[in-house]
Design a protein around this nucleic acid. Structure first.
Length: 425
RNA sequence: GGAGAGGUCGCAUAGUGGUCUAGUGCGCCGCACUCGAAAUGCGGUGUAUCGCAAGGUACCGAGGGUUCGAAUCCCUCCCUCUCCGCCA
């Protein structure tokens, strides 16, 4: 959500900036509905004031035992009451419509975000490490995973359908190790507080983060009108929904492991092999609530938090600054981390680190006060993956594969997995 | 899932149709007293929305309804607590 004042006073600017993202906003409808609302509101409030005064007078008369005069006064209110009811009905409709329209406006891109329409226009900010060299043809992770008995895709398909891999034996342990390693790192080294959120959330929470109303088709919905979370971002961002935080609490930073569920409707085709695009996956998510003036510094720091995981594991990656057209509706500025996948021969998106500024905090009403009695302001909210496990799993197997089909384990993971080498049995 | 109790201004409580534009205590802010502090006294202390402002309006879990008038009555829903049932 954007500032309503900005929509009123700088709609041309909003239209232009939204177009950088390739989004057309319902500007005229908003201005029309909002205009009518504002023309009605003063009238209605005045009528209500009149009614309040009259009712109070009736109450006073009743109190004095002047029943007949009170009855007389009552009789005079009918017309006024009808007018108020009509206007109230209209006001309610308009308010609902305004909110509905407001929710359709995308967040506006930050000035540092490059122009562009597609992923081809994203800017490579930096690369870390180099592509590993192999004296043999590196295999993709789905082959390694199956030959090492870490992954069983047919079993997953049988149980649930395609896009639901079964991790087996050392593969399951490997997965669990990645999660523990990342959570421990972010909480012990980078100052995050660990939280473990519910996996089913209500619609309000999804509106708060911006997943509803526009992206409902991406979500799994239950018969109880709860949704499976597409990322821990949703429950974690909503921890402070409808709250006014004290300034000394900021920044608040959470690291949360959760499973993530995505329908990815119509996404079949590209990137679907192995673990590249699945309906259920695991992720450690980072979420920060901070002061507006600090959010871009915090954004850079969060990017480093995510990068450190890849560095510790010795994986080659690059950092992309997404162009306006490719960054999605919700963000102001977004970096993607792409890890090199030798078996697939491509960079794989493994993390998105986004500054939402006040877009989510306005929706979720996460505010703060700088001092007691002062005005409320919206916090800035950021989140980033730190990281998603499937592609990390894939990159690790592919990067550390040996000619004999075994895979070495980078040092930081060895204590978690309990070995430094996984060999075919 | 069943039965009962309850959700009021940061916290605790009062309030069962009209002096409730919600009282009181605690907390917090300001002022006074003080060398300073405590104690005490006085004043203030929510959110949202409309308005240039003055000032309105709405909000007592949420949403409807009855009424000239609702924290208070009615309906639906949500949540919390107690007991029972079921269950990792």
């Amino acid at each position: 959500m954007l500032d309503r004042k900005m929509l009123r006073e700088q709609m041309d600017f909003v239209i232009t900036e939204a177009r950088r993202k390739g989004v057309e906003v319902p500007s005229e409808e908003f201005l029309a509905v909002d205009g009518e609302y504002r023309s009605i509101k003063p009238n209605l409030d005045e009528l209500r004031q009149g009614m309040n005064t009259k009712s109070k007078a009736i109450g006073a008369l009743m109190g004095q035992g002047k029943k007949e005069e009170a009855e007389l006064a009552k009789a005079e209110t009918g017309d006024l009451k009808q007018k108020i009811q009509d206007l109230e009905t209209r006001e309610r409709e308009l308010e609902a419509k305004i909110i509905e329209l407001e929710l359709q406006f995308p967040n506006l891109p930050h000035e540092s975000v490059p122009e562009g329409k597609t992923e081809a226009d994203n800017v490579v900010v930096r690369e870390w490490g180099t592509k590993p060299e192999f004296a043999f043809e590196p295999k993709p992770h789905w082959e390694l995973g199956e030959s090492l008995k870490m992954l069983d895709f047919p079993a997953g398909s049988k149980i649930s359908g395609s896009g639901f891999p079964l991790y087996t034996g050392i593969g399951a342990r490997f997965q669990r190790a990645l999660i523990s390693f990342m959570i421990d790192f972010q909480t012990q080294e980078r100052g995050y507080t660990e939280v473990y959120p519910p996996y089913l959330v209500n619609a309000e929470s999804l509106i708060g983060t911006g997943n509803l109303p526009k992206f409902e088709e991406d979500l799994y919905k239950t018969q109880d009108n709860l949704y499976l979370i597409p990322t821990a971002e949703v429950p974690v961002t909503n921890i402070h929904r409808d709250e006014i935080l004290d300034v000394w609490q900021l920044p608040i930073q959470y690291a949360a492991y959760s499973a993530c569920f995505r329908r990815e409707a119509g996404a079949a085709g590209k990137d679907t092999r192995g673990l590249l695009r699945i309906h259920q996956f695991d992720k450690v998510e980072l979420v920060k609530f901070c002061l507006p003036e600090n959010s871009y510094d915090e954004h850079e720091k969060m990017l480093e938090d995510a990068e450190h995981v890849l560095q510790a594991l010795g994986l080659h990656y690059r950092v992309l600054l997404l162009c306006a057209g490719d960054m999605g509706e919700k963000g102001c500025k977004c970096y993607d981390l792409e890890v090199w996948s030798p078996g697939v021969g491509r960079y794989l998106e493994i993390s998105s680190v986004t500054n939402f500024e006040a877009y989510q905090s306005r929706r979720a009403k996460v505010r703060f006060k700088r001092e007691a009695g002062g005005p409320t302001e919206f916090v800035h909210i950021l989140n980033g993956s730190g990281l998603a496990t499937p592609r990390l799993f894939a990159a690790l197997l592919e990067t550390y594969q040996q000619s004999d089909g075994s895979v070495t384990i980078p040092e930081p993971l060895q204590s978690y997995i309990g070995t430094d080498l996984i060999s075919p049995t």
